[in-house]
């Protein structure tokens, strides 16, 4: 295969993380909303797995649930397992999970101030994180932190250790947060829209850092709505729609021949793929409400290929080789590609 993620020759290896049938719900005044509904996937060491989907599709809730960062109440992990190095992240005692967070699984957020304290200098935050997780001297931890700030491209790193977060630009804060994650050399990084708020030149720097981490055999779960970012960095992707995975497969294959009409619509709405002067393709209608999911395919009401059978019963995610798709008309999509019933 020619994907960036699996260019190294390996024997059969175990997934680093295996998520099975994850269901997360939120109690609201109007009823119980399932934000994640039966999501299963796995990530190999040294793989960047992309998760793409629009606002509210459940991609961030999936990520937050893995480290049990969903506020409870109203959120609740109803069922599912997340096997990581032989332990279930969703069932282990919370004290044990605290040892995993940051040390074995790092998390990068879109907004760096959710992870950095405004009241403490950068240096003391980076040192504290190391000392929480291991028996390391202050000087040694300080030097390690400086080294990582330099690696993520912070100029005058030894001086910046004394800065407060508000004294840095947004792009620099983001890189400080990324340094704080990378310096722990976690086995898995969960990155939720890590570059969305950044300028394109800074975005390229951050993506380079994630690629370097991957080359050191770190696995990355990369959540983004930017298809270009997925294409550039990921070996495989999951497409989520209305709380479910609707398509999964190697990036090049899925982009070349999407098997779910939603994936195809997303690709066509991407301005980078459109022709100048022409209309961009859009998706008619709206995502069904979290509280009133249809019985059958959740995309059917917006799908140009939907048949009556699509609306009758839930459509299973069907696997074929390295790909899976949740669509009764996947073969028709592949065969002709005509967007009509």
């Amino acid at each position: 295969m020619s994907n960036p993620g699996d260019d190294k020759k390996r024997g059969p290896i175990e997934p680093l993380l295996r998520v099975e049938d994850l269901v997360v719900s939120f109690a609201t005044e109007a009823g119980v909303a399932r934000a994640v509904d039966g999501v299963s996937f796995s990530i190999m060491p040294g793989e960047i797995l992309g998760v793409v989907g629009e606002s509210g599709c459940g991609k961030s809730v999936t990520a937050m649930s893995l480290l049990r960062l969903i506020p409870h109440p109203p959120g609740r992990i109803e069922r599912g397992c997340a096997w990581f190095r032989g332990r279930d992240l969703l069932a282990m005692p919370i004290d044990a999970l605290r040892r995993v967070r940051g040390r074995e699984i790092g998390m990068i957020f879109q907004e760096p101030m959710t992870a950095l304290s405004p009241l403490h200098r950068i240096g003391s935050q980076l040192v504290e994180a190391q000392q929480f997780h291991g028996d390391i001297g202050r000087d040694q931890a300080w030097a390690h932190a400086v080294r990582w700030l330099e690696r993520v491209g912070i100029p005058d790193a030894p001086d910046r250790m004394y800065a407060y977060p508000h004294e840095l630009s947004g792009g620099m804060r983001q890189r400080v947060m990324i340094a704080s994650v990378l310096m722990m050399e976690p086995a898995l990084i969960i990155a939720d829209e890590p570059t969305t708020a950044l300028d394109v030149t800074i975005q390229a720097q951050i993506l380079r850092l994630l690629m370097e981490a991957k080359n050191r055999d770190t696995a990355v779960l990369l959540i983004t709505h930017n298809l270009g970012v997925i294409w550039e960095t990921c070996s495989r992707l999951l497409v989520m729609y209305a709380s479910e995975i609707v398509e999964q497969g190697p990036v090049e294959d899925v982009f070349a021949g999407p098997r779910h009409p939603y994936t195809r619509a997303l690709l066509k709405a991407n301005p980078a793929m459109a022709v100048r002067g022409g209309r961009l393709e859009t998706i008619p209608g709206q995502v069904p409400s979290l509280l009133r999911r249809p019985n059958g395919c959740r995309f059917a009401d917006r799908c140009p290929m939907a048949l009556d059978t699509c609306r009758q019963a839930a459509v299973p995610l069907t696997r074929a080789g390295a790909r899976s798709v949740r669509c009764l008309r996947a073969d028709a999509m592949e065969a002709g590609g005509e967007m009509t019933p």
């Binding site: 100029p155 030149t201 390229a204 720097q205 380079r208 270009g228 294409w231 550039e232 960095t233 982009f255």
Partner: peptide, 23 residues
């Protein structure tokens, strides 16, 4: 540089150049 650093579907993958330095 601005044009080169935008990840776009269809480009050769994993070859995004990086513009060094800060604004």
């Amino acid at each position: 540089a601005l044009l080169a650093v935008v990840p776009e579907v269809g480009r050769p993958r994993g070859q995004l150049p990086v513009l060094a330095g800060e604004i």
